[in-house]
Design a protein around this nucleic acid. Structure first.
Length: 389
DNA sequence: TCTGGGGTCCTAGGACCC
DNA sequence: TCTGGGGTCCTAGGACCC
């Protein structure tokens, strides 16, 4: 039987802010978009448990949060600080096993099956990790210990904050049966209402319905869901996932049909994406434009490159050509630049300048220079002239 | 009171190849 | 004049997660 840990930081961004600013402790802290006295655009990224008592939760529109708690402490996220703390936490994990799979900035799966002979039982390892995180960062984490990933994830979530839940090797069915179907990984609002329409409310109901009927109800995904419902999950903990896409997008303060403004935003986003690709030593084979109108109707258009690139100018030219095909019969709310079909920068197809795409060579030097300047002086140090007001 | 930004995975139709 | 079957890749959209 495997021993899997899921470790999840409690109200991560808000807790970091309370740790760094003692005057915020014990108060409702809301990290996210600027509320602009209720007129702000955007959502809550994270909030303290004090804020949750007002009915605030992550993904809530920031204007609604403002109405629920106008006296709260509203903060813009400081991602680089959160990234720094995240690094400290991941370092703790790696002291107990090499098999660490980060799921996001503040949570990870650990396979400690091989660690137990040297370090003691899995639940004791979980306890030590919690204590170590608290000592190094002052923050609390919630831990789930179980024979597989799904059970460990559900367990860590059950007793938040500062939780610690162990699922015994033979206790999966009893543990899961009373929980609502929304706890199942992959069951969001859509699937939940489909399942409710079938009269299925708890994970136990799903297990009882049986695999075959669930596949008939939901298609092939139903088989996977039934497995989870009875506590079967063979997915391994994978330490080094390859990145599959890199993208940047932005929502405007006010919707706009100003093509020049949109194009210069596309240029900025293209440069951002390209810089991130280069930092990861990747090149992109496909470029995607994303466009969302005022009505929230969203379109994507993609275009394959003849040769993978990490050059902002090449990405921009492609994305601009895609953009030119849109009539803009509505104001635009959001615009984004994405890249996929990623390969290593030294991988096949990147070295030969045989095609027109590979104007990369000369502007590649410009990219390198920009990277070095951003590295030394920060991202605001250098802009393309076309981005200036 | 509208609904961020970063991702992953799945589906389905069409092109294209053998 | 009619028109297979399987595989793979590309594209667009959607569900879901943190």
């Amino acid at each position: 039987m495997r021993k899997i840990l899921h470790i999840d930081m409690d109200a991560f961004y808000a807790s970091v802010e309370q740790q760094d600013n003692p005057e915020f402790r014990g108060k409702p802290v809301i990290v996210g978009a600027d509320p602009r006295a209720g007129a702000g655009r955007g959502v809550v990224a994270a909030c303290s448990y004090e804020a949750r008592r007002f009915g605030i939760h992550s993904a809530l529109p920031i204007g609604q949060a403002w109405r629920l708690c106008p006296d709260g402490i509203y903060l813009r996220p400081r991602f680089s600080r959160y990234q720094e703390i995240s690094g400290q936490i991941m370092d703790v994990f790696r002291e107990y096993t090499d098999t660490v799979e980060p799921l996001s900035i503040d949570e990870a799966f650990l396979d400690v099956t091989g660690s137990t002979t040297l370090m003691g039982p899995a639940d004791r390892i979980g306890g030590k990790i919690k204590a170590e995180i608290r000592e190094r960062t002052g923050l609390t984490a919630s831990v789930g210990v179980a024979p597989n990933k799904f059970l460990a994830k559900v367990a860590s979530d059950l007793d938040k904050p500062d939780g610690f839940v162990v699922v015994p090797d033979d206790g999966a069915a009893a543990f899961l049966a009373p929980l609502p179907i929304s706890r199942l990984w992959g069951v969001g609002p859509r699937t939940e209402s489909r399942l409710r329409a079938l009269g299925l409310e708890t994970i136990g109901d799903l297990a009882t319905r049986g695999r075959d009927r669930l596949v008939a109800d939901l298609g092939s995904g139903g088989g996977h869901l039934w497995n989870l419902a009875v506590g079967i999950d063979d997915r391994p903990v994978i330490a080094n996932w390859a990145v599959k896409s890199v993208s940047n997008e932005t929502t405007f303060e006010r919707d706009t049909r100003d093509r020049d403004a949109l194009v210069s935003t596309l240029r900025r986003l293209s440069d951002q994406v390209a810089a991130r690709l280069r930092k990861k030593h990747l090149r992109a084979g496909t470029v995607t434009l994303k466009l969302r109108y005022s009505s929230f109707t969203t379109y994507t258009r993609q275009s394959g490159l003849r040769e993978p690139t990490g050059d902002g100018e090449i990405i921009f030219q492609r994305v601009r050509a895609l953009f030119d095909r849109f009539e803009l019969d509505e104001p635009v709310r959001l615009i984004g630049v994405g890249t996929t079909r990623l390969t290593g920068a030294d991988g096949p197809g990147t070295q030969l300048g045989l095609f027109a795409d590979s104007g990369a060579d000369s502007s590649g030097k410009l990219s390198d220079a920009m990277d070095r300047i951003h590295e030394r002086f920060g991202n605001r140090a250098l802009h393309r002239a076309s981005d200036l007001p």
